[in-house]
Amino acid sequence: MTDTDQRVTTTTDTDGSPAPGPGAWAVLLPPGRYDAERLVHHDALELTGLGQAVLPRPGDRVAVLADAPPRLVALGRVSPATGDRQDAPEDPESEPGPVELVVTYTRRSFDAPVPVDGLALAGPVTALEDAAWRELADRLGPPPRRRSWLVSLDLPIEAASPAEAVGLFWSYVQELGPRELPAFVSPSGDELAMQAFVLGEAANQDPEEDD
């Protein structure tokens, strides 16, 4: 039995709820996974191929990190792992195989990662002391205020009928995804502030402005 098997914490999470899990952990995203998690909203992170003898248990708190340079991108809690990882078109580098670890996100900050210095990681999954996890969680600060946005995707499609056009539309969306298709977003009630986003970043779609 390891020391992490016996660890018990009575601290609270950032949402004020009790922390019933026996430990806290840092989880490092695999190479290429940061973009996939940032481009498409997922409620949970599924990881395979960890190859570690000791893994977090359901209820444990997790700080999710991206590497090179180390950045804090999310907080979460461990959920039971069942089944195999599903194919994700937006994540072509994902490993097939049984899911070993599932982290349900409680706070996401993929678009505004927080630099992390001086944290020693022992692999894809590293046990943390409660104080170390708390320090990481505090770096994110309070969650930003949520508001309503209008998001659209316009594609010119040649088809013999409206139904066929819609079917082709969804085929293109699945095939090209957020890595190639521009999505247009604006605050509700302020359509003049519309911006195009590609690869999760604002992208100019007016060729005349490039001249």
Rank of each mutant, 00 (worst) to 15 (best):
S148Y: 09
V102Q: 07
A160W: 11
E180F: 15
T12G: 15
V185I: 13
D190I: 11
G23T: 00
A120L: 15
E191M: 08
E90G: 08
P70L: 09
D3Q: 15
V27Q: 06
L150P: 08
P92N: 02
S152Q: 11
A68E: 15
L47R: 04
D210T: 09
A36L: 00
L128W: 00
E90S: 12
D154I: 01
V27R: 03
A183D: 01
V166I: 13
G49L: 00
G118I: 02
S17V: 11
R7C: 08
R85D: 07
S161E: 11
T104P: 04
T9D: 14
W133E: 01
T11A: 15
P142Q: 04
T9Y: 12
S171V: 11
D35H: 06
G51C: 05
T2L: 13
L153E: 00
L128Y: 08
V8M: 12
A24Q: 09
D5Q: 13
L28H: 02
L72F: 15
A203E: 13
P113W: 12
L168R: 07
L150K: 03
Y172G: 08
L199Y: 05
R139D: 14
G97W: 09
H41K: 04
D5N: 06
E180D: 10
D130A: 09
W133M: 00
E135L: 06
E93Q: 13
S171W: 10
R107L: 12
A132G: 01
A202N: 03
V64N: 01
G32H: 05
L155T: 03
R147K: 14
F184P: 02
P156G: 00
P187V: 05
W25K: 02
G167E: 15
V54T: 12
W149D: 05
L75R: 01
Q195I: 09
G189I: 03
D190F: 12
T126W: 06
G141Y: 15
G123V: 08
A165V: 06
Y172M: 07
D84G: 10
G141N: 06
L29N: 00
T82Y: 15
L50M: 09
D91F: 02
P89S: 10
A196G: 14
A63H: 08
N204P: 02
D67N: 03
P89W: 08
A74I: 04
G23Q: 00
S79C: 14
T10I: 10
L39W: 03
R38P: 01
P70N: 08
T48M: 01
T106A: 04
P178M: 05
E180I: 09
V103L: 00
L55W: 09
L101I: 00
A53D: 07
R61M: 14
T2K: 07
V40N: 04
R71V: 10
Y172K: 05
Q174Y: 13
V173G: 10
L50K: 07
V103N: 00
E93W: 11
G141E: 08
G21S: 06
A66E: 10
G59W: 09
V99D: 07
D154S: 08
E158R: 08
L72P: 06
L150S: 07
W149Y: 12
